[in-house]
Every structure is written in C-alpha cells, then in structure tokens.
Amino acid sequence: MQFPSLQLAGSEFWIAALLALGVAAGILALVHFANNQVKRAVIVGCAFLAGLFYFLEFFIPPDLKSEEVIVLRWNLTQTGSIIGNAAQVIAGFTFLLGIYNLVHIHGNIIRRLRGGWINSVAFFAAFLAMVVFAFWRDWQNWFDPLYPNYITPGKPEFIDPKGATFASQVADKLWAPLWVNDIVKDHKPRQDVYTLLFEGVYRNMDATMFSILAFYIVSAAYRAFRIRTREAAVLMITAVIVMLGQVPLGQFLTNWIPADGFFHGLRLEEINQFVLGQINSPVQRAIGFGIGLGGLAMALRIWLSLERGSYFEEGS
C-alpha cells in the first residue's frame, strides 16, 4: 500500500480538507455517544494497533537501499512520518488548549483582583507583545512567500520582485514598518521589536534562570552533606574529593606528589578519576539497566492496556 503523492489544489484541496474535518467530527461524535464498554474497546484496540505499528517498524529489517521498512509493498517508515505529522497537528491544537488554560487562570486573577494580580497583568503584556510582534513581522510572507526578506540600503525601501500580484498587493497594504520587520541587509542583529524582545529580553531571562542554579547548588550542597550517619560521612568525603579534584585548586593541594612516582594514585585528581570511573560508572550502569528494563515493561503495559487502574477506571 504505497500512499500516492496526491497534489490537491484550489477547490479540491478545500473540499478534501472539509471532508476530513467532517469524518473526524463524525468519529468524535460516535465515540462520545458510545457506552463505556465500546469506548474502552476502541481505546484498547487503538492503543494496541498503534503499538503494533511501531513494534513492526522497529523490528522488521529495513530495506538495504532506502533504509526504510517495507512490508508487502507497504512502506511503514513513510506511514510513520505521516503519523508523526498528524501528531504534530494534534499537538498544535492542544497548544491552544494550553494557552486557554493560561489566559483563563490569569484572567480570573485580574478580574477578582487577587493578590499578585499585577503579575498576571505582566503575563498578558508579555504574551501579547510577543504574539503581536512575531505575527506582524512575518505576515507579508503569509500572503506572498516571495516577499523579499532583506533590502539593501540606498535602494527603494519596498521592492516587489515578481511584479504586483494580488498577494503582493495585499502584502503591500499590510506592510510592516522597519521597526517591526527590519529587513535592512547589514543589520545584524535585526533592529526590530521582536528581536529586541527575543534576543534582548527572553534570552537573558532564560540565561538568568539557568545561572540561578549555581546559587542553588551551593545552598543545597551545604544542607545535604550533614554527617549524621556513617553513610553520610562517606558521601560527604567523596563529594569533597570530587569537588576539589575537578578544579586546579584541589589539584594544587597534592601537586607535590610526583605524577609518575609510586604514590601518584594519591593525587586528588587521580582519586577523583577513580571515584568517577570505578565507583560512579558501575552504579550508573546498574541504574541504567534497571531503567531500561523498567521502561520495556512499562511500554508493554501501556501497549497492552494493562495500566487500567492507574488512569481512568478506579472504582469501576
């Protein structure tokens, strides 16, 4: 079953899209009005089929030439990528759901003037600023994909390379000023509001949150390593050795031991490497095996719908 590479254009495309929507709505309605037993059967069946598909795709040896998995002329790899695209579309819709959730919560806080409502105002301001300037910047390209994405200084500010098509006329009407969409060729970075918000604000706030970690590691470490028990003492001594062995200062402390002498193993960096290689590494491996097998078992349980009590069916 090879999917034909169908190219729909104009009204055909819209009819196909509407048909697909209609079918989807029909299936949804059927599932909605079905009784629980039918629903359960549908869910279990879908989960099993979907799992089986990926199981086969993974285990069947791929075609030597294309590296794609083909069973009885059905190209599983290609189908897999179509399913992947469909999942992306669904994720797009759930994103709207997520945004609704955010707007709902923050809207409520402002409406009832709950404590900290000013933060919610900040949320809306930031959210709208990003949305407006991101869309405004790029919208000429929606109407006219050939809209130039740069201009050279000295030339007329707005040029239309393909002549005035309808689309470019629309794009012309909706034209964004340079401070919204900076397309001057030599400007690196672009000098527009979106770039300011993304590069100037968002990136730095992101980096700030990341660097807060350094401070948190300090406070967490000094609380965690209290030697109340013997095990804690071992843990603390190991931590101190590794922390010092990782940096020049620690290495400096045992630099007087000759690096090629009999006692070189006592240098801090050597002990550090021993801890990482001979103690840490087997533990990592053991945990890794456990997690791998646990994941395998969990995947089987989800695939065969055995995890029932865990999600929807408590009490039934």
Binding site: V218, R223, R226, M236, V240, M243, L244, V247, P248, G250
Partner: peptide, 23 residues
C-alpha cells in the same frame, strides 16, 4: 575562569564544613 571555578568549589566545601560544625 578555572581559578574562579576553583574558588566556587572551595566555597562550597567550606560551607559543608560549616554546616557540620555542630556535629
């Protein structure tokens, strides 16, 4: 930078020791 990192590690080690003073 490595010297800076060294001192950061040293600071943590000192804090850990400080935390263990009562013990």
């Amino acid at each position: 930078t490595m010297a800076g990192q060294s001192f950061a590690h040293l600071y943590i080690v000192l804090l850990i020791l400080l935390g263990n003073v009562p013990i």
